[in-house]
Amino acid sequence: PNGTNINNGCGSTHIEGLQKLVKENKLAVGFAYDGDADRCLAVDENGEVVTGDVILYICGKFLKERGLLKNDTVVTTVMSNIGLYKAFDRAGIKYEQTAVGDKYVYANMQANGHCLGGEDSGHIIFSEHAVTGDGILTSLMLCQVMAETGKSLAELRKDLKIYPQLLVNVRVDDKELALNEPSVQQAGKEVEAALADTGRLLLRCSGTEPLVRVMVEAQDDETCNEMVYKVVDAIKASGHAVS
C-alpha cells in the first residue's frame, strides 16, 4: 500500500476476483468493500453479484416478515431499479425515493422514522445500529438473514428481477436549458408512454458536471437502447450537445 492504490484490482469496484474465488471454492458468500468500507456488495454461492438494491430487498423483506421494518418502509434513491419497487409491491413493502447520496437517504430516514435505506452502490444504512453506511454491519446483517432463514443468498433473491438498465451522459452547454427544451421533454413523455409499467425513464441534470443524464430501465437491452437514444437524439438535435 502506498496511499494511492486502495482496492487496486479488488474490492467493490473490482469484484471479479471475489466472484471467481467464491465459485472455485464453493463458498456460501463473499463480501467486497470500497476503500473506506462504508459500501458493501456481496457475491452469492453461484458467483452472482448482490448489489445494494438486492441487499435492500433481502433485508427489507426479512425485517418486514418479523415486524421489525419501521413503517413497513425502505428508503431508496432515484437510481434504484424498477425491479426492486415491483418486488417491494409484491411483498407489501412501501418505499420512498431521495436524491442520489446516502446523506439524503439518512436525512429521510431520520425525518420519518424509517430504519432501513440505501443505494444500489452498496451504501446501506441500518439506523437502529448506525447513522451511515457500514460495510461490515451490512455483511453481518446479511449473514443474520441467511442464518435465521436457512436460505442461501440466491434463494433469498429469487423473487427479485432486476431490469436491464442503460445510462447515457450527454455533455451540453447549459444543462438546465437542454433538459427543459420542449423537444427533449416531448421525447421523454413519448418514452414514458411507450414503457408504461414495463420500465421507466430517469432524465436529470448532473449535480456537478455539465451533463444531462438519460437512464432507461426496461424488460430487455434492445428496448433500453432504443428508448435512451430517442431522448439522447432529441438533446443533440436541440443544439445544446457539445463534443
Rank of each mutant, 00 (worst) to 15 (best):
I125F: 07
I124T: 13
S183T: 14
F31P: 02
S127R: 13
A234L: 01
E155Y: 03
E209N: 00
Y95V: 00
E226Q: 14
P210L: 07
R66Q: 10
N5E: 15
T76R: 02
N2Y: 10
A111W: 01
Q97P: 06
F88L: 03
V100N: 10
D89A: 07
L41S: 10
T73A: 07
T13H: 13
A187E: 09
M146W: 01
K61Y: 03
V75I: 14
Y106L: 15
E181I: 09
A87W: 02
C10E: 12
A107S: 12
V242S: 08
E16H: 11
G92W: 06
G67E: 02
D220L: 02
H129P: 00
V184I: 09
C40P: 00
Q144V: 13
V145A: 04
V78F: 08
G188Q: 01
C10R: 11
A234K: 09
S183V: 13
D72R: 05
I6L: 15
N2I: 11
G9F: 08
C40G: 03
N8H: 13
Q186I: 04
A28G: 08
T76K: 01
K230Q: 15
Q165T: 03
S152D: 01
T4F: 15
G30C: 11
Y106W: 15
D120Y: 14
S243K: 15
G60V: 02
V231G: 06
V100G: 04
D38M: 02
S80P: 02
V75D: 06
C115L: 10
C143Y: 12
A87F: 01
I124V: 15
E176P: 03
S183H: 09
E222W: 01
C40A: 13
A178M: 07
S80T: 09
Q144E: 15
D220H: 08
V145F: 07
V74L: 01
C115G: 12
Y104V: 00
L142N: 00
L202S: 00
V100I: 13
Y85F: 12
R171G: 07
G52F: 07
R200F: 03
K175H: 02
E96F: 10
A241S: 13
D102L: 05
G60P: 00
Q219Y: 08
Q185R: 14
L140K: 11
D174Y: 04
A42L: 06
H240P: 09
A241R: 11
E16Q: 13
G122H: 03
N81I: 00
G67K: 07
N5M: 11
E209V: 04
N46F: 11
R213I: 01
I136Y: 09
S238H: 05
K70Q: 14
C224Q: 01
N8S: 14
G52T: 00
I55Q: 05
L153D: 02
V232W: 02
S80R: 07
E181G: 10
L160H: 04
V232Y: 07
N225D: 15
N112H: 14
V232G: 05
T132A: 12
I58W: 03
G9H: 06
L68E: 15
E192A: 15
E176W: 10
D38N: 01
L41R: 11
K26Y: 09
C143K: 11
E16V: 12
A237T: 01
T198P: 08
C205P: 08
N180H: 10
K236V: 15
N108S: 14
G30L: 08
G207D: 10
G35L: 05
F88A: 04
G11L: 00
K230V: 11
